[in-house]
Amino acid sequence: KKPMSASALFVQDHRPQFLIENPKTSLEDATLQIEELWKTLSEEEKLKYEEKATKDLERYNSQMKR
């Protein structure tokens, strides 16, 4: 599977709780709203997800070399 971006990892982490809190929201709308939240994060908060994305890219690259 392809590597995930930092923002995609953020959405993946936050979507389940968002949908619990907003059960009538469609998956598409939830994703859009969480992506807007991503844009408001500080660089420090984004760094955690950027590090995860880097590790996921390394995983992807090692799988492609096999």
Rank of each mutant, 00 (worst) to 15 (best):
K2Q: 02
P3S: 02
P3W: 02
P3C: 04
P3L: 03
S5P: 15
S5C: 04
A6W: 00
A6H: 00
S7C: 05
S7F: 10
S7N: 12
S7A: 14
A8E: 15
L9R: 13
L9G: 05
L9M: 08
F10A: 01
F10V: 00
H14Y: 12
R15C: 01
R15F: 14
R15W: 03
P16K: 08
P16D: 15
P16Y: 07
P16L: 03
P16G: 06
Q17H: 01
I20T: 02
T25W: 02
S26F: 01
S26I: 02
S26W: 00
L27C: 04
L27R: 07
D29Y: 06
A30W: 01
A30L: 01
A30C: 04
T31E: 09
T31K: 00
T31I: 03
T31S: 04
Q33F: 00
Q33S: 06
Q33T: 03
Q33M: 05
E35S: 07
E35G: 07
E35W: 01
L37G: 08
W38T: 04
K39W: 02
K39A: 12
K39F: 01
K39Y: 10
T40F: 13
S42K: 12
S42V: 02
E43K: 06
E43R: 13
E43T: 14
E44Y: 05
E44F: 05
E45V: 08
K46T: 03
K46Y: 00
K46A: 03
K46M: 02
K46D: 00
K46E: 00
K46C: 02
K46N: 00
L47D: 08
L47M: 14
L47Q: 01
L47H: 14
K48T: 07
K48C: 14
K48A: 11
K48S: 09
K48N: 04
Y49T: 01
E51P: 04
E51R: 12
E51T: 12
E51I: 09
K52H: 06
K52W: 04
K52R: 13
K52N: 05
A53M: 03
A53C: 07
T54A: 14
T54N: 13
T54F: 06
T54K: 14
K55A: 15
D56A: 12
L57V: 10
L57S: 09
L57T: 07
L57Y: 08
E58M: 08
E58G: 08
E58H: 11
E58A: 10
R59W: 09
R59Y: 11
Y60F: 15
Y60H: 12
Y60Q: 11
Y60T: 13
S62A: 13
S62Y: 10
S62H: 14
S62Q: 13
S62F: 12
S62L: 12
Q63I: 04
M64C: 07
M64R: 09
K65M: 06
K65C: 07
R66G: 14
R66K: 09
R66C: 10
R66S: 12
